[in-house]
Amino acid sequence: MALHHRWLFFLLLILIAESSYGQPIRIIKYPDLQQILESPNDSILIVNFWATWCAPCVSEIPHFEKISSQFAASKVKVILVSLDAASLLKKKVEPFIARKRIKSAQVVLLDETDYNAWIDKVSPEWSGALPFTLIINKKNKLRKGFERPFTEAELTAELKPFIQ
């Protein structure tokens, strides 16, 4: 029996090591997201809603990673909120994030499938189309939503007014 437990323990260790290749991705609920969006601090937040099944989202993900490392000194924080099914975290989301070498941007998976219960709370102007990006300056409460994919140049241009 004890031997069994030991094996299970090792198996668990291997699984944990395997899954933490790339960054560990937290599964969150709406109140956690709300805290991310509303907790007061002095950073500029870029929150991108995406999914591995959304082709334009997948194309723009590298821009967010680049912006995140490029503007880290300007207190810009990038959070990529995956709307993939929570059951696909290990199979799809984590391998994708590791493959795309997303290190600077923080990735979470929002496990809230009753969309109508929270989309308006994130932003009334958001129809539900992916990708959707919010840029928030927590200090002066400036907030803008974008229901479209970005090029790197467009994203930089939209970010600039929030930094100054």
Partner: peptide, 9 residues
């Protein structure tokens, strides 16, 4: 009305 996530046109 009810919103949901979907693929942008």
């Amino acid at each position: 009305t009810a919103k949901a996530i979907g693929c942008g046109i």
